[in-house]
Structure formats: structure tokens, C-alpha cells
Amino acid sequence: MKYRTVLFDFDGTLMDTSRGILYCAKKTISDLGFEIPDDAALRKFIGPPLKLSFMGVCGMDDEQATRAVQHYRERYAEKGMLEADIYPGMEKLLKSLGEGGVTCAVASVKMEKIVRKTLAHFGLTDYFDAICGAPEDVNIKGKEAIVREAVSRTDSKPEDCLLVGDSDYDAKGAEAAGIDFCAVLWGFGFSKMEDAAQFTCRYIAEDVPTLERFLLK
């Protein structure tokens, strides 16, 4: 195996969570009296820390964005978190990695308790040795700390680890934490090779079968 430990981003990498995220983002923005942005702008809510998205996409100030995050999380816990689908072939890949002795973990900027509930609902929990997400604090700004926590919880060494993710937040978090990064193009961040190639990538996977070949062969 190329890596002893593989960390997976959640939104846009393991699961297509767009339906729930976009519904809750629109509902929150409307409830707080802001104009709902176009679809292209709304997609920026998938992946990055929520507070940064409310500030960057909607122009909210710090206090407004903090309130928006809390409002969003209430709606997401009620309905949005289960409006998701695991990407085709991903469960097969996780099973193959486990059978090959690879340690798998989740590293997400989504609240950890929500990640755990969603994985449990879809029957995916047992594939992971660690599930690491954001704390209750709404002020998380990046992914480095979460990646480091995932490395620690799996008792791994940084040089043995790879983070698989779909966005610049993942790429920057992996680099800051001192581990390798593999970009994927099926999520909501990188849409083409050129987007991912701007960052330090060990590999760029166009689809799940391509990622499986890279990790297992």
C-alpha cells in the first residue's frame, strides 16, 4: 500500500451532501433577511467553514454570520443532514482499503456530531478508525487542526498519511499539517485538473475507480 493511513474529507469527497446544505443555506439566508445569491455562489457553502461562507457569499458581518451558523445548524440537524448520497464506488473502496490493512479516518470541517450521525445513518461508521470534525465553536477558519487531530487519533505518523479532498481548504490543510494530499474532481471545489494543479498534490483523481487504482495498486 502507498499509505498506511488515508484521511477522507466528508462533503464532496465521501458524500454528496449538496441537497441538504443548499436547502439549509437558502432557508437561513432568507430567514435572516438577506438576498439569496445565485446557484454558483450558493455552491460555495459546500466544503468551507460555514461562517466564512456567510461572510464571503452574503456579506454578513461577524455577529450576523455567527447567528447564521447557529440558525443553519438547527435546520441542518432537523432535516438537512440526511439529504445526502454516498458517491458510487466509495463504499467498495473503503471496504477494500480496510481489507488491505489501511487505516481510514474522516477529517471534516463539518461539526463532528453531525458527521457521526450521518455516517451512522448510512451504515458507514465501521469503515473508519477515527471520525474527526469541527467542534461546536463557529469560528473555525481552516482544516489544519482537524487533519492533525485525525493523524493523532489514528496513532499515525504524518509521513504515512494521505488526505483525500475536493477543495483548496483540503489542500492547504494537508500541507500545513505536513501530510500528502490527493485531489478529487467529483466534489464541489476542484472541477478540472487545472484547479487542483495549483496546489501540491500527490495525485489527482477524476473519479472513484481512479482513486482506487492509485491507493491500492
Rank of each mutant, 00 (worst) to 15 (best):
M1V: 13
Y3R: 08
Y3S: 02
F8H: 02
D9A: 05
F10Y: 07
G12N: 07
L14D: 06
T17Q: 01
S18M: 10
Y23P: 00
Y23M: 07
A25S: 13
L32Y: 11
D38F: 06
A40H: 11
L42F: 04
R43N: 13
K44N: 12
I46E: 01
G47P: 04
L50D: 02
S53N: 03
S53C: 07
M55F: 05
V57G: 03
C58P: 06
D62Y: 11
D62A: 12
D62R: 09
E63C: 11
H71A: 14
R75Q: 14
R75E: 10
Y76T: 01
E78A: 12
G80F: 04
M81A: 13
L82Y: 11
L82E: 06
E83G: 05
A84I: 10
D85H: 12
I86A: 12
P88V: 07
P88G: 08
M90K: 00
L94F: 00
K95I: 00
K95P: 01
S96L: 13
S96F: 01
L97P: 00
E99L: 09
V106L: 10
V106G: 06
S108F: 04
K113L: 13
I114K: 02
V115N: 08
V115W: 05
K117W: 10
H121G: 15
F122M: 13
F122G: 11
L124K: 09
D126C: 04
F128E: 00
F128N: 02
F128T: 02
I131L: 09
A134S: 14
E136A: 15
N139Y: 15
G142S: 14
K143A: 06
E144M: 13
V147C: 05
R148W: 12
E149P: 02
A150C: 10
A150R: 05
V151A: 07
S152M: 15
T154A: 10
D155T: 13
D155E: 15
D160W: 01
C161G: 04
C161V: 03
V164H: 04
D166K: 08
D168T: 09
Y169N: 03
A171W: 06
A174M: 05
A176W: 07
A177G: 09
A177D: 07
I179E: 00
F181N: 05
A183H: 09
F188T: 01
F188Q: 00
S191P: 01
S191F: 07
D195S: 08
A196L: 10
A196Q: 08
A197R: 15
Q198A: 14
R202I: 11
D207Q: 04
V208E: 05
P209N: 04
L211W: 00
E212P: 11
F214E: 09
F214L: 12
L216T: 13
K217W: 10
K217V: 13
